[in-house]
């Protein structure tokens, strides 16, 4: 630390951190615009990976090293892969090359709303609203790695919330299985279901009738 202060003047370290921030911000903003503007859903997912990597770079520059690693592992490694998996499962042909779907008037309104939100946030962040007392839930930076203090905080102050997240994860897994599961009490009906589904949609304007009959069948099957 002292060596670096001797060898590099303060301006140089500041320049390094400024350039890291500028590069990270450019990656983040370019990726975000790509997510919004890409026609193909797969391209959107890849731009999302780019944004997440930029966020991880910014986390490192703010000395949140553990969170940067978790950001890469959980977001880029698990969540985006899940997105790509679902895109491929649903069939890329059905998803790609949809135009920007809304009407121009709606797009203009949406952009206006977004700019108003941006202006409000910037207006609020100009004043010193961050007047909270420092280090109320523990010191972030000091001797030793930050991850130790993060673990202390999570496993002591926020232990109940941590237990609640474990319950949340179990509930999410079970609900995903229940949601996507097929009712295979009648295998022939299940096999027919996928083939006749597009016809049903073409024939009936409102889906309520078909879903109603399906629900009736399901209740009958359950009763049997």
């Amino acid at each position: 630390m002292i060596n670096s202060l001797i060898f590099y003047p303060l301006l140089a370290t500041s320049l390094v951190s400024i350039s890291v921030f500028v590069v990270g911000a450019a990656i983040v903003l370019a990726g975000a615009c790509g997510v919004v503007l890409a026609k193909n859903a797969v391209h959107s997912a890849l731009f999302l990976v780019m944004t997440l990597f930029g966020i991880a770079v910014l986390f490192v520059s703010e000395q949140a090293n553990f969170l940067a690693a978790v950001q890469i592992i959980v977001y880029a490694g698990a969540i985006v892969v899940l997105f790509l998996f679902v895109i491929m499962l649903l069939g890329v042909d059905n998803l790609e090359l949809q135009p920007i779907e809304s009407k121009p008037r709606k797009v203009l309104g949406a952009v206006l709303i977004g700019l108003v939100v941006l202006a409000e946030i910037l207006l609020l962040s100009r004043n010193s609203w961050t007047s909270g007392a420092p280090s109320t839930s523990g010191v972030a930076f000091g001797p030793g790695p930050t991850i130790n203090r993060l673990a202390d905080s999570i496993f002591s102050s926020y232990l109940l919330a941590f237990e609640a997240t474990s319950a949340l994860l179990i509930i999410a897994v079970i609900s995903a299985v229940v949601l996507v599961r097929r009712n295979n009490f009648d295998s022939t009906q299940e096999d027919d279901f996928e083939n006749q589904m597009p016809k049903q949609i073409l024939e009936s304007d409102s889906l309520s009738s078909t879903t109603g009959t399906n629900a009736n069948k399901e209740t009958k099957g359950n009763l049997l």
């Binding site: 903003l29 949809q98 709606k106 977004g114 946030i121």
Partner: peptide, 17 residues
């Protein structure tokens, strides 16, 4: 970044995006 996300949520109609 938040504003770009909000605008995208409003103008895109593909649920995945």
């Amino acid at each position: 970044l938040f504003s770009i996300g909000a605008i995208g949520l409003l103008i895109r109609r593909n649920i995945l995006i």
